[in-house]
């Protein structure tokens, strides 16, 4: 080992300046992490902050569940069959999104767009069912202004529905970008963020169908 190498090693014992792309997990070992890992981490932190925001709505709903102000209760309003269909739609959509990620990894444009189309159809059907449920509740005089319980319900479930709707718009732009710009590195990172977002929505829905619908439907 030459003296120059020894000096370089002592100045940079962990080879931070000599990043080997494959050996950088993002903890300083082997140099700076790849952009893909950093972007995924940043977006994961956004998703967690979103989940923390939802936890506030969940807490409000749990506290106000019995504050019906003489109006209809959750057991009188909720239709578990409808919720089961919505759950199946969102899970199928999440799976199709996973298939789209696989197709992106394999760089197969036709399969990417086909899988994204299936993802969109299932997601859109989910939003449609939820909109129908909301319209039905409002028509029965159980709108968000009826009681604190219904305000909390519409805020929590409606916020998730807005997230899914935003995800649908994002999916369209993602599909257009993949079509127009191809599998560029930055487009691949955006697609990674989109797939994380879509799968995280399904996680929040698991909490909603358990804590809101299954708990609420019991007398």
């Amino acid at each position: 080992m030459t003296s120059a190498e020894i000096t370089a090693q002592s100045a940079d014992p962990h080879h931070l300046g000599h990043g080997d792309h494959k050996r950088a997990p993002g903890r300083g070992v082997g140099g700076p992490a790849s952009k893909r890992i950093v972007v995924g981490y940043g977006f994961w932190i956004f998703l967690l902050s979103d989940i923390v925001m939802f936890s506030g709505f969940f807490a409000a709903y749990a506290v106000l569940h019995d504050a019906t102000a003489g109006g209809p209760t959750s057991a009188q309003l909720f239709d578990v069959r409808n919720t089961a269909i919505e759950t199946a739609l969102l899970l199928a959509s999440s799976f199709a999104c996973g298939l789209a990620s696989l197709a992106v990894d394999a760089r197969k444009p036709i399969w990417v767009h086909a899988a994204l189309a299936v993802t969109f159809v299932f997601g859109f059907a989910f939003v449609g069912l939820e909109a129908r449920e909301f319209a039905d509740l409002v028509a029965r005089g159980a709108g968000p202004s009826r009681s604190a319980f219904l305000s909390a319900f519409f805020t929590l479930v409606g916020c998730h529905g807005l997230h899914v709707s935003a995800g649908l718009l994002w999916m369209l732009t993602m599909s257009a970008q993949l079509f127009a710009k191809g599998f560029r590195a930055d487009i691949l990172r955006r697609f990674l963020c989109f797939s994380l977002f879509w799968h995280a929505l399904d996680i929040i829905w698991v909490a909603i169908f358990t804590l809101v619908y299954l708990f609420g439907a019991k007398p």
Binding site: P25, G26, I37, S55, G56, A59, A62
Partner: peptide, 29 residues
Amino acid sequence: APDNTNNVLALAFGVLIVALVIFGSLWIM
């Protein structure tokens, strides 16, 4: 995996905050 350590730690922190918000609210109310 090593490239996921940061994500797991962030998740642990998120779970802590979510638990504090939900169980704290229920307990206090």
